[in-house]
Design a protein around this nucleic acid. Sequence first.
DNA 1: ATATCGAATGCAAACGTTTGAAAAAATTTT
DNA 2: AAAATTTTTTCAAACGTTTGCATTCGATAT
Lengths: 344, 344
Amino acid sequence: MNSSRPVTIKDIARRFRCSPSTVSRALNDHPAINEDTRKNIQEYAREVGYQRNEVSLSLLNKKTATLGVVVPTIGNYYETAVIEGLHTVLQPLGYTLNICVTNENYLLEKEYLSKLLSNRTEGIFLSVSQETYDSGYYEHLENVIQRKTPLIFIDREYEDFETSRATVDDYHGAFAAVEHLITIGYKNVAHLKGPNGLTVSEQRFKGYRDCLKKYDIAIREELIINTNFQVESAIVPTKRLLDLDSPPDAIFGVNDQVAIGAMRVILDRGLKIPGDIGIVGFDNSPISAYTYPSLTTISRPGRKIGMEASRLFLNQINASGDFTHESIVLPSELIIRESSLRIS
Amino acid sequence: MNSSRPVTIKDIARRFRCSPSTVSRALNDHPAINEDTRKNIQEYAREVGYQRNEVSLSLLNKKTATLGVVVPTIGNYYETAVIEGLHTVLQPLGYTLNICVTNENYLLEKEYLSKLLSNRTEGIFLSVSQETYDSGYYEHLENVIQRKTPLIFIDREYEDFETSRATVDDYHGAFAAVEHLITIGYKNVAHLKGPNGLTVSEQRFKGYRDCLKKYDIAIREELIINTNFQVESAIVPTKRLLDLDSPPDAIFGVNDQVAIGAMRVILDRGLKIPGDIGIVGFDNSPISAYTYPSLTTISRPGRKIGMEASRLFLNQINASGDFTHESIVLPSELIIRESSLRIS
DNA sequence: ATATCGAATGCAAACGTTTGAAAAAATTTT
DNA sequence: AAAATTTTTTCAAACGTTTGCATTCGATAT
């Protein structure tokens, strides 16, 4: 078919019987170009819809103005908030964000990173996939480091790597959540944990565990059950909790989704929230304020994380020699709502 | 600093005192290359972490294997499902998806499209922003058409453009939602409408309106109030509905978020769902099955839309001359849950 | 020894753009 | 009118890779 090759600077040069350099300069308002020439060329270019081939420029300047954002999922509120934060800072600086979703899949993550490097991406924001965590392979990351492509870890990270990173203080958030439940009188706090191995899951679990320790409450293994962050994954675990001989009187969910799933099961059993069972989630997703009952939760400043991560990246590329990596940990905050208001 | 320029084919050629062509062929397993040469070069390349510069290849072949996905937002379940669908089909074919979020902003949309064209993106999936709709400007789209870059509309579209498009049957979905409410006995169905002007909003509104017509129910303007798809935006409108002299006994929300917001207000007033007021949402978002009460809704096959859109794109680029654009409309389906189970 | 052949490698152009330096053209000064 | 100066344009190289064609080098057949 009429494939209609995009018009190039050479095409325009031919049309005006001049050299490509002249056209290039004319289009870029170079002062050495005659006023008339400039006008004519610019007008013609607009007419025929000329558009600079950025690919050739990227090759020439070794700059692509493209950044990779590699995340396990974009299904949750938090991730989209992070992306929005990155976008807020970086888009105005002319960067294009290349968003890659790994679905928690190691091979896909590896492929994406390789592709980003091949495409000469100028920086990569990475929240590693669960499979990567599990497998412990990380050569694909060493590749990035070797290329000196700035790599910023978001949330999840390998402790072994020396890079900048931005995370939310999951540990203290979780601690605060559980402490809140305990101080208002709940005695048996269960935890619907995230997938094992992920920093996010483990940090929140640690917060849960250490808080119980602080209040001299023995940890009951049967009160800790895994979920996968999805609302559905909370159903069976919650039922199991309720079916225990000595069921919990409070549940700390690894995130809001899981907490909402748990609430549903509890209400279905005819139990009262927060009367019989108190619930706390994590994320402060928009919906959490409007569930019935509304959900006590821990804020998780995704947008801010994105903006901080951007800052870390910019620091790194603007560094002059004496650069050291930075670790930003943003605080998370307890937001008390109905699901944990024990009527005392 | 040590900027560590990535190693190129020329570097390798120098090292082996051979020409770049030989290196290129060796790396690509060209049969004319001596077995030893090939092995040595490949091994060395692996050692030094050589990685093909895809930018130069893009320039040479005029192929970027990159597709643009321009959407107003990625905050909702639906959009992420669409992206997942696109991804499912196109990632295995080697395409990189460049996801651009316009925040419903015309200028940003324009800028993104221009950038995608400049970067020689091979196709664009577009769900136009609200501002674009409102303003009626669409030169930025003509630009894409002129370049013959395949343009696939998702959900929202300009009727004036001749392109392929994939949409969900919002009209009949909305119709079914309202019909469901009416047939089980609700008499005064309100509608929390989406922003004016958007296809999605208007189609659902039309479904609402036409269904009332079918059952000879007069349309009461005061029962139709705008929201912006966000859960918060349903609060004030719902209160206004409940404060009417003759309040509705059912509400059809433009999406699940809005419906959930409405439910919350209604429950806060001490009214029963579905006893006093029936609720139907739209999207069948994961959370809708686990709200309390669970939400009757209309399914919206985002993943499928993404896959269909991919198919349309592939059809277009593989077409041999006699290509005509296609419009796919996927059905949406009523999913009955507790929020509309009137106890009769 | 020479022609013939096959294998292995090199040359050069191409993709589209920018840019320093050189060249050409136009203008001003002497 | 020639020289000097300024303005405008062109040349050529560069970015990294691929690829058709030519070349080189041995080896084999005559």
